[in-house]
């Protein structure tokens, strides 16, 4: 369970997040939505311990989140993973990163670690890519590799920051289907997204954020009016079929 207790975050006096107070129960598929600049990525960075100078507190499984994170990694897919396109790493190398915290300092990956990583790539539909250099992968293929890495942590939480941003349209549904399978195994999925239409058929809990919370409740209890309030007057819900 993840609890945000009255979290406030400012940069140079400018408020980025205000009075964030909500709970994510285990096993939820959470979508965090809101317009650009709403503080969605910042909220995720606070949860991951990448930003620490905020007010309030965040609890994970009853512990202060920093304390919890010292013992457990969280499976995380950033919006854009920054790396040199020529970096000589294969998809397998990147997936193995998810197992690194289980190995003691200086210890190398074993044959069974490599097999586990290949299995995880298979779950994410990327087994054929394990020898490919990461610079040669498409956005969608790379996201699958990152998802395989996240799964290998065995963390009960998988956090994604706009995973659909680097995937082409047909690939988005396939990616969310994999997320649905992972969610069915009992993991808590927390994803930021702009694609409300696609998300509505997958997520169970919606967090509408625009610096402050506009709503946080079960997906089927959220009405269009609240979403419109979150995104502003210019937002219109359009029904789309893929």
């Amino acid at each position: 369970m993840i609890i945000f207790n009255n979290v406030n975050y400012n940069i140079d006096g400018k408020s980025i997040l205000m009075n964030i107070d909500f709970t994510i129960k285990d096993g939820e598929f959470v979508a965090i939505v809101g317009p650009n600049g709403a503080g969605k990525s910042t909220l995720i960075k606070l949860l991951l311990g990448l930003i620490d100078d905020f007010e309030g507190s965040i609890e994970i499984d009853g512990f202060d989140h920093i304390k919890w994170l010292r013992q457990h990694p969280i499976g995380y897919l950033p919006q854009k993973e920054i790396f040199d396109r020529h970096f000589p790493a294969t998809a397998l190398d990147i997936a193995l990163m998810g197992l690194a915290s289980k190995l003691s300092f200086g210890k190398r990956f074993s044959r069974s670690d490599i097999d586990k990583a290949k299995k995880s790539l298979e779950v994410c539909g990327a087994q054929h890519l394990h020898k490919s250099l990461i610079g040669s992968l498409s956005g969608g293929e790379f996201q699958r590799v990152l998802l395989a890495r996240a799964l290998l942590t065995d963390s009960p939480y998988i956090v994604l920051d706009e995973p659909e941003a680097s995937i082409d349209r047909p690939g988005v549904l396939g990616f969310f289907e994999i997320l649905r399978t992972i969610h069915a195994t009992g993991k808590t999925i927390i994803t930021i997204s702009h694609d409300l239409h696609t998300l509505s058929s997958y997520c169970t809990f919606l967090v509408c954020l625009n610096k402050t919370l506009h709503c946080h409740s079960q997906m089927d209890l959220v009405d269009a009016e609240v979403i419109q309030k979150t995104f502003g007057e210019s937002f219109h819900i359009i029904e789309k079929d893929y």
Binding site: Y76, F87, A89, I94
Partner: peptide, 17 residues
């Protein structure tokens, strides 16, 4: 192992403990 991932992306490597 640590140097490889530090070189790849230090922030992400930190998240993955």
């Amino acid at each position: 192992k640590e140097l490889f991932y530090l070189t790849y992306n230090a922030e992400i490597a930190g998240v993955y403990r």
